[in-house]
Design a protein around this nucleic acid. Structure first.
Lengths: 337, 337
DNA sequence: TGCCTAAGGTTAACCGCTTACCCTTTAACA
DNA sequence: TGTTAAAGGGTAAGCGGTTAACCTTAGGCA
């Protein structure tokens, strides 16, 4: 049987209170006693039970992380960043993949409450009513990552999607493109609309009229991107450049181009978004708008931690700047400027 | 304040024991009482605390998952598979990325013990002494995923690495290749050696002599693979085919080929291993040995669950068969057979 | 010498559930 | 009518820690 604090106390000839104080470095304990207790703990290979401690402390040192799919590289990278930052402060993670399924969201949210997480990070577009709203109103620490939960009193850490879209658009316009297709995620609550708006702003500044026939919706998969791109490229007057609202979709676009025998970037430029590791391994490597994923994960955790510790009075909204990473999937429009 | 079981009991005019029985469906409770208690719980929005329950039940319904890096697609996919299977049975996951750093491994192992996980899944090559051995000997449920822990009494779920290597080798040999370079992970305890052995077996059967100058070690990154491939391709009599011990390394090989101006597959064939999503997005798409990742995750969890429930007497070693997925990165050797 | 205080511990209640065991009521049955 | 037993629920002792409050001792100081 695993030794308990009682075993340690008995062996050391002290009370459990003393042992507890030694473990936590609280209270006043003489060096002599501290040393003896420490030795006994070592000897018994004692590991304090965090679940018992959690019960009295009313804190589990665990935070929940809800995301659409852990197998998606973007979210896996986010999760890793949060994990690392959390561990630095002694927190561990309860990760749940929702597949953007509202019923799973609700179920996992409830799980997190039952497991008594100290706070929740949400990287999934989610219903803003039901349990989540209830929790937010009860002041459960919550931070939204990369997606907004506009009607809820929670912290938000995200990238400037509009600016990112603008950068992508500007880049393409600068290369002389005037027919620019856009591939967007389906989800209403996703970040695509802002990215699109940004891209169109850049186009508008160059005097290019918005053309809704140049926007295609896709499901959040490579294949979704491929099909959407195929639709755009198969149209009457096909675009010379494609802006995909994330790297996964951009990869689909690359594939669609390949299938039509279009050279990238000579005959078609492609820009992605996120700058996941995927962008570095495509051929050609993908020009993309880079999200500071490490930073997002870290800041999001830090914000949550402040909430947990009650160090904050007001909800904050942190918007980080994206950066354009030019690789080899974009080039001046065919035929020159 | 969150309502407790006492609040529910009081409001329903019953004892906490009764409420507990209603929650867990144990004991004998009349329909009338059950209904009343259920209604009160709903009304109070009561969520039972799993941490309190864990303390008395001595079970947290949580399993630990140790892997090298959650941001690595292969492990992210494993994690996702385990997560899904776990949730089916009411278990959640405590994920820790070790970066193959022995000190982190030890630290996270200790964390898992303190958090009282019901079992541990290890997908990281790890020191087999220290805490892990101790736990294994104390019959803590443990299963090794994809890597063996030979000297420890634990269950193992893995793919037949030898066979996978053999399939890759056979495929290349069948295409007429005779100079086949191999890119291996560095780590001693990794699965590379078996994969290499399999590949060489296939070569030997074709009458090709082993040539150690055709093996290059790489760190587990795209860049590592790129450098290793560059070394092999830069040699005196360069190989016409490359077998990389995983997809990440294979992608590096693809890049190295591109840099040298070698056409894949016309001038160089490349085979990977794992069949992660990466293999589908490279250009050309990667021929690779497929691991049944879903299956591995699922089986591994099932084995662990059996251990946890004490339904098993003997340790088992489950070896799944890989499958060769031929895409477009391999072709008959230049110059024909 | 007497009083005060700091140092170093101890006591015991409590955290929110679970569960072995016990008690009461009622119906069945001989 | 008395006996049993099943049904339905209550009692209370933990689970392994934490912590407020309290106790004891000894040194400092007037």
């Amino acid at each position: 049987m695993k030794p308990t604090i009682y075993d340690v106390a008995r062996a050391a000839g002290v009370s459990t209170a003393t042992v507890s104080k030694v473990i936590n470095g609280t209270g006043r304990i003489s060096d002599k006693t501290r040393k003896r207790v420490t030795e006994i703990m070592e000897e018994l290979r004692y590991q304090p039970s965090m679940v018992a401690a959690a019960l009295t402390r009313r804190s589990t040192s665990t935070v929940g992380l809800m995301l659409p799919d852990l197998a998606n590289p973007y979210f896996a990278e986010i999760a890793r960043a949060v994990e690392d930052r959390g561990h630095e402060f002694g927190f561990s993670l309860l990760i749940c993949s929702t597949d953007n399924d509202p019923s799973k969201e609700e179920k996992y949210l409830s799980l997190m409450v039952q497991k008594c997480v100290d706070g929740i990070m949400i990287a999934t577009s989610t219903g803003q009513d039901g349990l989540l709203r209830e929790l937010a109103e009860q002041r459960m620490p919550i931070v939204a990552i990369s997606r907004e939960l506009p009607s809820l009193p929670v912290d938000t850490v995200m990238v400037d999607d509009f600016m990112g879209g603008y950068m992508a658009g500007k880049h393409l316009v600068g290369l002389g493109h005037r027919r620019i297709g856009i591939i967007a995620e389906k989800l209403g609550a996703s970040s695509s609309p802002e990215r699109i708006r940004g891209c169109r702003q850049a186009m508008a500044e160059a005097g290019i009229e918005a053309d809704d026939s140049l926007i295609a919706e896709a499901s959040y998969t490579v294949d979704g991107g491929r099909k959407a791109a195929a639709r755009l490229l198969g149209g009457g007057e096909p675009p010379t450049a494609l802006f995909a609202c994330n790297d996964v979709l951009a990869i689909g676009a690359l594939q669609a181009a390949f299938e039509r025998g279009l050279q990238v970037p000579e005959q078609l430029s492609v820009v992605g978004f996120d700058n996941t590791m995927l962008a570095t391994i495509t051929a050609p490597p993908l020009t993309t708008v880079s999200q500071p994923i490490q930073d997002i994960g870290r800041r999001a955790f830090d914000a949550l931690l402040q909430e947990i510790r009650g160090e904050k009075r007001t909800k904050q909204r942190l918007v980080l700047l994206p950066e354009l990473v030019v690789r080899r999937s974009t080039a001046p429009v065919a035929g020159g400027l």
